[in-house]
């Protein structure tokens, strides 16, 4: 058992009283997500590869009948969990957090403005990045040129749905992107509406973990798209996702007697 594995197991099972631990470890020359039960050897734990564990957990959660799961959580994972709790998709009593402060390199890759978890168990907290260079470059462009940039990027899309499948805050049971009315074009690329609908759908949920961008085979700078929209939502509505106590300003409550819909 490695030192990191020992430390992690001790936090999860002794300190937090979890029944399971969700982390990553080295297997077959690669790094794999791993769910360990109390007492199992954690092996060569590796926390330097940015698997989106909350998304991985959301796949497994419906099958977990009982027990508490300790999850290695970066700051963005914490915020994702808040969105789950807000919608009562996870029972907060069953999810325990092991705070992981991201490395300087990871913070830079994510252009992350909020990298430090509420409680850091592992890692050294790093300074936030205040700006995303591509965002600034794009906003300095004339609108036509910016449109050309995104049109080219979206033309590379091969409709793998990684951006939704790997997204921790894509919650809908029925995905609007699979609805022919909204994404009518047969084949690929799916057209700009695909990406814009998705961007708007996540406007009040995206916690900027960057997993969509990392998973995109076409390397469309999706995190920049998210950051640009998040900035607008913050400026216009004074709202940022990732806190279970706040309500999205985009949720409209209809007056009684409204026959509009």
């Amino acid at each position: 058992m490695s030192d990191l594995g020992k430390k992690l197991a001790s936090i999860a099972f002794d300190e937090l009283g979890a029944d399971y631990l969700l982390a990553m470890r080295e297997e077959h020359g690669n790094v794999a997500p791993v769910m360990l039960a109390r007492g199992q050897d954690p092996g060569e734990i590796r926390l330097d590869v940015p698997y989106q564990l909350v998304n991985i957990l959301s796949n497994i959660y419906p099958w977990l009948k009982d027990g508490k799961v300790a999850v290695v959580t970066r700051r963005c994972d914490e915020k994702a969990l808040e969105e789950f709790f807000k919608r009562e998709l996870f029972d907060p009593r069953r999810i325990l957090k092991i705070g992981l402060a991201c490395s300087k390199e990871q913070v830079a890759k994510c252009r992350c403005s909020d990298p430090v978890p509420a409680k850091t168990h592992i890692g050294e907290p790093q300074k936030a990045m205040e700006k995303d260079e591509l965002s600034e470059k794009l906003m300095a462009m004339p609108p036509e040129e910016r449109l050309r940039f995104w049109a080219y990027q979206f033309k590379k899309c091969n409709k793998c749905f990684a951006c939704t499948l790997t997204c921790p805050v894509c919650f809908c049971d029925e995905c609007i992107l699979e609805e022919k009315t909204f994404v009518p074009e047969p084949g690929i690329p799916p057209g700009m509406s695909f990406h814009l609908i998705r961007a708007y759908h996540l406007a009040d949920k995206c916690i900027e973990c960057g997993e969509c961008e990392r998973s995109c085979p076409a390397e469309i700078p999706l995190l920049t798209l998210r950051k640009l929209l998040a900035k607008d939502v913050k400026e216009i509505f004074g709202f940022a996702p990732g806190d279970r106590k706040t309500v999205s300003p985009l949720l409209t409550v209809l007056e009684e007697g409204c026959n509009e819909c």
Partner: peptide
């Protein structure tokens, strides 16, 4: 789940 350390797929899939 894609394998992020795989040298062929680089953690991406179709």
């Amino acid at each position: 789940v894609p394998c992020k350390t795989d040298e062929i797929s680089l953690g991406r899939l179709c």
